[in-house]
Design a binder for these strands. Structure first.
Length: 577
DNA sequence: GGAGAGGGCGCC
DNA sequence: AGGGCGCCCTCTCC
């Protein structure tokens, strides 16, 4: 368990948990804190151990397994380490895959923030995020600041296990799913998303023109910029500067508050059409243009870094390459290899279904029984149109108070009182500064000290009106956050369960070799992509349906709410949906 | 010249 | 007065 001053302290510790015995009985392979020794252990012994297990599984004599007590018929070993994201990518590069793990860092974060954690868990000292590329900085940092004492991983594991033993089953499930997700995240980043450079370049050329010399804009952007400058009578304008653009638009007589596209769309002026097109294309160029391609796509693969629980709600985030924001227009470059297929699956109306299930709203469960929840809400007579259902529910889950969404909300609340009551209660807790939690027990972060001080100032005697207004606004904002948190975090748990179950099913059926077998390559909140040899594609598609249903049962039992997915077999990502 | 804030926009 | 992100750009500040 590393604490604060990264590399010199006990960096890793690979521990084998003896699951059979019930007791922890962990074996610390190397607890010396010597980084080099630990890395050697990770590289050498782990593959050796895996190989030994494989021999054992085939009934052959195991050659010096690292842990001799491991029986061939036992559950596969669960490797315990401080941080999957630090160790697993390197093992994958060495050709080693792991079936199960226990991630001390992710588990600690869950335990320390969960209201469901059994009393008595004292969190580990803060575990600093550490990645291999920042080792130089970390080492420098360490020279100036001595590391606090570290905790041995076996002790950390014991502390966490003992807290989990007396915590609700949901929290144990969440901890297991979180670690499984961490393995899947590293494996997806390692395998990479199949990406056709030629297709992407063709697309860029058709939309932007030829690739410009370094430091120049593409021809199409240049022309549009000239047209805008012309129409505004401002030959030197820099369209990439919102402040300057706003000033110029105003001096051209246009009444605008911002330069956002949706506001500009309402205007009639010869500069507007080319300006909107400039914004769209400029975005493509800077976010997913040739530079992006050079930086992120190698040997036909885009290798995003997925960060499990990178968002407080438990959603994943990503680092580098903007993996979770791949714009629709570039998805045609995501293509299966020759002889392979992509199976693209996304959950239908995940968040409202999650809300229906967790709130136990039977009317909404009935509405969800057709494939389309929003249409179901129309069919039971709650609202007139599908659009009303959709925007009304989004408003309920996001805290929208204006427009069409606010108008239909009262009707939705009458038809589905438990679902709406559930998010309302979460909002009220947030407004009062109280935390909320997901179904399985992920806790929401507490509001900041500044937030509390503001609330206190507003409830003091004769507060000034500005403070009252600010406090009210901050309270509502926290309420919107907690309102959304309960749904978003539980939806993330469903998705995590789906990933874990699908990953397990794929491994069981096809093995773990991503060069020959179906494997996960992409995940975005409620959508998964598997890359598979064509002859397995239909089978994989069926597995994706089945594991989605299993994920619903795992979280909610035999709930009346189904969690259907749309899953299609395609060659290119753009063909899905 | 690097850090950080803010505008804006892509995704769910 | 709509939840969560990451990333690119500009601009200000040190």
């Amino acid at each position: 368990m590393d604490v604060g001053g990264p590399r010199q302290t006990c960096l890793v510790q690979i521990v084998l948990e003896q699951l059979d015995g019930g007791a922890i009985g962990a074996t610390e392979i190397d607890g010396t804190g010597n980084e080099k020794a630990i890395e050697r252990v990770a590289r050498e012994q782990l593959p050796a151990f895996v190989a030994a297990r494989e021999h054992a599984g085939r009934g052959e004599a195991a050659s010096e397994p690292v842990v001799s007590e491991q029986r061939a018929d036992a559950q596969p070993p669960r490797w315990v380490w401080d941080d999957t994201a630090v160790w697993y990518p390197e093992l994958l590069r060495a050709g080693v895959t792991i079936e199960r793990c226990f991630d001390l860092r992710l588990t600690d974060a869950l335990l320390r923030n969960s209201p469901h954690t059994a009393a008595g868990y004292s969190a580990l000292p803060a575990v600093q995020q550490r990645r291999h590329h920042d080792s130089a900085d970390a080492a420098l940092f360490h020279l100036e600041q001595p590391a606090p004492p570290s905790m041995a991983p076996v002790a950390a594991l014991q502390r966490q296990q003992s807290a989990l033993e007396t915590s609700p089953a949901g929290l144990r499930l969440l901890v297991a799913a979180e670690s499984a997700g961490a393995l899947a995240a590293a494996e997806m980043g390692h395998a990479g998303l199949p990406w056709r450079r030629d297709e992407h370049e063709r697309l860029l050329a058709s939309m932007l023109g030829a690739r410009p010399a370094e430091g120049y804009r593409p021809e199409r952007l240049e022309r549009l910029a000239l047209a805008v400058a012309d129409a505004l009578g401002a030959p030197t304008i820099n369209l990439d500067s919102p402040a300057e653009l706003l000033r110029t638009l105003r001096s051209a007589g246009l009444a605008v508050e911002t330069t956002r596209s949706h506001e500009l769309q309402r205007l009639r002026h010869p500069a507007i059409a080319p300006l909107l097109e400039y914004k769209t294309l400029s975005r493509l160029w800077s976010a997913n243009g040739w530079h992006w391609l050079d930086q992120w796509v190698h040997q036909g693969r885009f290798h995003p870094v997925f960060v499990p629980a990178g968002v407080v709600s438990g959603r994943w985030s990503s680092e580098g390459g903007g993996a979770l924001q791949l714009p629709a227009v570039v998805r045609s470059a995501v293509r299966a290899d020759e002889g392979w297929k992509l199976i693209v699956a996304d959950a239908a109306q995940l968040e409202p279904r999650v809300l229906a299930a967790m709130s136990g709203d039977s009317a909404m469960a009935r509405a969800s029984s057709s494939g389309d929840l929003y249409q179901g809400m129309v069919d039971v007579g709650a609202v007139e149109t599908r659009a009303q259902a959709k925007y009304g529910m989004l408003g309920a889950m996001y805290g929208g108070t204006t427009g069409e969404s606010a108008k239909v909300l009262p009707r939705i609340a009458r038809a589905f009182p438990r679902a709406i009551g559930f998010v309302e209660a979460a909002a009220q807790r947030g407004e009062r500064g109280m935390p909320v939690s997901s179904l399985l027990g992920r806790g929401s972060p507490e509001p900041s000290e500044a937030w509390r001080e503001l609330q206190a100032a507003a409830s003091a005697e004769s507060p000034d009106p500005v403070t009252v207004r600010r406090a009210r606004s901050a309270a509502r904002s926290q309420g919107r956050f907690t309102r959304n948190f309960v749904v978003q975090a539980t939806a993330a748990e469903w998705a995590l369960a789906w990933i874990a179950l699908l990953r397990g099913a794929l491994r069981q059926r096809y093995g773990a070799d991503h060069t020959t077998s179906p494997h996960l390559v992409f995940f975005v909140h409620d959508e998964l992509i598997v890359h598979a040899p064509a002859h397995h594609a239909e089978d994989v598609r069926e597995l994706m349906h089945r594991t989605a249903a299993d994920a619903g049962r795992l979280l909610f039992g035999e709930s009346a709410v189904a969690f259907p997915v749309n899953a299609v077999v395609v060659d290119g990502y753009d063909e899905a949906k």
